[in-house]
Design a protein around this nucleic acid. Structure first.
Length: 749
DNA sequence: GAGCACTGC
């Protein structure tokens, strides 16, 4: 294998030469010992002779880091072409790119780079580019042939995220288009290609321009490589018409699986018992427990700590650590730290530990066999979170977590016959989510017939129809169900929920686009207000030894009151949307002021402190600021290369960025105009009825209007948990609806 | 008077 050169001559400033070569040698050795290294030649032969290749590789095969390097060395980047590798997650794209840059001995962003939302580390010399699959989809909007790529590798395809599924369909048709002469394509205007893709040269002047550029040219064919874990390779094989498949060995230690004899009536109790059985009877090694959510994790944590107290001193060396996505990152990091000497770690995790994070030192896995999953009812248009049994694939993924570093054990808290009854793989996300975003995106990519589109697995027909109806009502589609001009095209350009995109477009006419930009950014992130539970417990524990129980309760109540008072500083009687704007502006003021005379880190620190004092989730506010600015880090002084910055986009569209100042009436009227499908009227019993669907709903208790209960309101989302709750609501005037959405509401006398 | 699996542009 030809070796890759280190970046420039680093010896003058990169430390002693000997170190450098020792490290280089070590990396070369590691690379050679990976299972995939033995099939390099065969893989390259397969890629040369076939346009589609499926690689089935288990964990530890080295496919993600090695394959792009093999392709580069085999000459697939000649003529400045790029090898693109997609990942479902941002962190994976970044960390793998870093690893590969190191292996190649190049600086990040040179030959090897990555590109994710808000962070683009690529340059004109980048040839191996890691990115999220969603980002490649956005690129396809700008260049429908993805002409700068010679090879596209879709990694972790078995996870079947919505973006992966859409991408597979698009890549299939891009490949078909690139294998024929380009100059023919514009002539087949309005005729349907096999995949339901219509090349519409009038669609977009920019795209027509790019087509003209290609006229008479023949693009090089696109090589497609799909990489998947072993279990569900058959689906890919069938979807790609019996494409070549290569199996690459993984490097995984054996894991013994144990089942219970009978079904457990109380799986949390069974979990607790199993934790202590392992702790008291098994050899050294940490334990990973899969639970369904934050609440369950917190209660198991409490139970373990209680039970631990009953053990003799020398047997109490157990450290319990929770991990779930909404846990602050400092707390998440604790699971990666080694336990104190002589201690065993028990990690209580959601399915974040299935794929997103890999925790070292795990030897035992406890799997009650349940997962909280999102479901979508096309009939009601409602999403809900329900606890369901895992699939076999998920159970395997979970048990595999015990065999990363050595042989392990997995305790499934259900009988073996129950395992046999589980479905083979998890239902792909595209079959259980709201499709309005996907449909808008496909329309923008030139896919006219959504139902006829060649999905690997078709979404439910009713769900597609529901989305088409919604988009039509928002004015994004014409009567022929094509993207409307300009609204549909404008909406598709914005990386937002269709309703939020529409709200921005309308806000330009209502002179409140400044406010709406902040609002959609805040609505796009997790809950802003956050009462850290451990704070409550701190109060309780601190006082437990000094005070009467009643005093403890009083202290807790006082604490909750503080949180509420803090929230009140920002709360507005107009509703949650204005409240969110108030929070954003207050945090932004603080951040900007703190930045003057301070470095960025100090400003970030001040910000976190301020958030904590005000019971605000600092990560959410930060995310909202990123979305609002949609700031892409400019690498090497280059300008951001993508044109989907929200603010820049709305300006380019000719929308008028103005503030309504204190005139929140205008702002609320704009909300009514955009969210008219989400309007609800108060019923005599204090609940609400959604005007468009007739559903009975309640205001979520986190809303500032929970007590006020105005007669008429609009809401951002409707989620079913214990009740049908509407979240993020604002007061509107009933009469605005027929005035601002006459296409939908007519005044009945 | 509740609760939020996990991603992504």
């Amino acid at each position: 294998m030809p070796s890759m050169d280190p970046a420039g001559s680093k010896d003058s400033n990169g430390g002693p030469k000997a170190d450098f070569f020792a490290r280089k040698q070590r990396i070369a050795q590691q690379r050679k010992s990976l299972p995939i290294a033995s099939v390099e030649k065969r893989l390259m032969d397969e890629v040369r002779s076939h346009d589609i290749l499926i690689i089935v590789g288990e964990t530890g095969s080295g496919k993600t880091t090695q394959l792009p390097q093999y392709l580069f060395n085999a000459g697939f980047c000649r003529d400045g072409k790029i090898i693109g590798i997609t990942q479902p997650r941002r962190v994976a794209a970044v960390s793998v790119a870093k690893r590969v840059a190191e292996e190649c001995g190049v600086e990040m962003g040179q030959r090897v780079g990555y590109s994710i939302r808000f962070d683009d580390m690529t340059s004109s010399s980048t040839r191996i580019k890691y990115m999220t699959d969603g980002l490649l989809l956005r690129e396809a909007l700008l260049d429908k042939y993805l002409s700068k790529y010679s090879v596209i590798i879709v990694d972790e395809a078995h996870e079947r995220t919505v973006d992966t599924d859409v991408l597979l369909g698009i890549l299939k048709s891009v490949q078909k288009a690139r294998s024929g002469p380009i100059n023919q394509l514009p002539n087949i205007d309005h005729t349907k290609a096999k995949n339901g893709v219509v090349i519409d040269k009038e669609n977009d002047s920019q795209r027509a321009g790019s087509l003209n550029r290609y006229q008479g040219l023949k693009l090089s064919p696109l090589k497609l490589i799909i990489m998947s874990a072993s279990l569900d390779a058959r689906g890919f094989f069938e979807y790609f018409g019996g494409a070549r498949a290569v199996h690459v060995q993984g490097r995984q230690f054996p894991v013994d699986i144990f089942y219970t004899k009978a079904p457990e009536t109380d799986y949390l109790d069974a979990t607790l018992i199993t934790i202590f059985q392992i702790h008291l009877e098994e050899g050294a090694g940490d334990v990973l427990v899969f639970l369904t959510g934050q609440e369950e994790i917190e209660s198991v944590e409490r139970l373990v700590l209680e039970k631990l107290k009953q053990l003799p001193e020398e047997k109490r060396k157990l450290k319990v650590l929770p991990i779930y996505s909404s846990l602050p990152s400092e707390k998440q990091m604790q699971v990666f730290m080694p336990a104190p000497i002589g201690f065993r770690k028990v990690i209580l995790a959601t399915n974040i530990a299935e794929t997103s994070v890999t925790i070292p030192g795990i030897k035992y896995v406890i799997d009650p066999g349940l997962v909280k999953a999102r479901t979508y009812s096309a009939h009601t248009g409602m999403e809900s979170l329900v606890v369901v049994p895992t699939s076999k694939a998920q159970a395997l993924q979970r048990s595999g977590r015990a065999g990363r570093e050595g042989p392990g054990k997995c305790f499934r808290l259900y009988p073996e016959r129950e395992f046999e009854k589980l479905s083979d793989s998890t239902v792909p996300e595209i079959k259980r989510c709201n499709l309005s975003k996907v449909v808008l995106q496909l329309k923008a990519l030139g896919v006219d017939d959504i139902i006829g589109f060649d999905f690997m697995e078709k979404p439910l027909r009713e769900a597609v129809i529901k989305s088409l109806e919604l988009l039509a009502l928002l004015g994004a589609l014409t009567e022929e169900s094509r993207l409307s001009k300009p609204v549909g095209h404008q909406m598709a350009r914005l990386p937002l929920d269709p309703t939020h995109a529409k709200a921005l477009i309308l806000a330009s006419q209502f002179n409140c686009l400044e406010e709406m930009l902040i609002t959609v950014a805040m609505l796009s992130v997790e809950s802003i207000f956050y009462v850290p539970r451990e704070k409550l417990e701190e109060v309780a524990v601190d006082n437990l030894f000094q005070m009467h129980v009643a005093c403890v309760l009083a202290a807790v109540r006082f604490y909750i009151k503080c949180a509420r008072t803090a929230a009140k500083c920002f709360s507005s009687l107009e509703g949650d949307h204005v409240t969110l704007i108030n929070v954003y502006r207050a945090s932004d003021d603080l951040f900007e002021k703190s930045k003057i005379g301070n470095n960025r880190e100090k400003a970030e620190k001040d910000m976190r402190k301020w958030c904590k004092e005000n019971f605000i989730n600092s990560r959410s506010v930060r995310q909202a600021r990123d979305i609002h600015r949609q700031a892409t880090s400019s690498f090497l002084g280059l300008k951001p290369k993508y044109d989907w910055q929200i603010r820049e986009n709305v300006e380019q569209m000719g929308l008028h960025v103005a503030s309504c100042g204190d005139d929140m009436l205008q702002f609320r009227r704009c909300l009514a105009a955009a969210f008219f499908l989400n309007a609800a009227l108060k019923q005599p019993d204090g609940t609400y009825r959604v005007l468009s669907s007739g559903q009975s709903v309640q205001i979520h208790p986190s809303s500032v209007l929970f007590r006020t209960k105005p007669d008429c309101l609009i809401f951002d989302e409707l989620v079913r948990t214990n009740h049908n709750y509407i979240r993020n609501v604002s007061r509107v005037d009933y009469l605005w609806l027929p005035e601002l959405a006459p296409q939908y509401y007519t005044l009945k006398e």
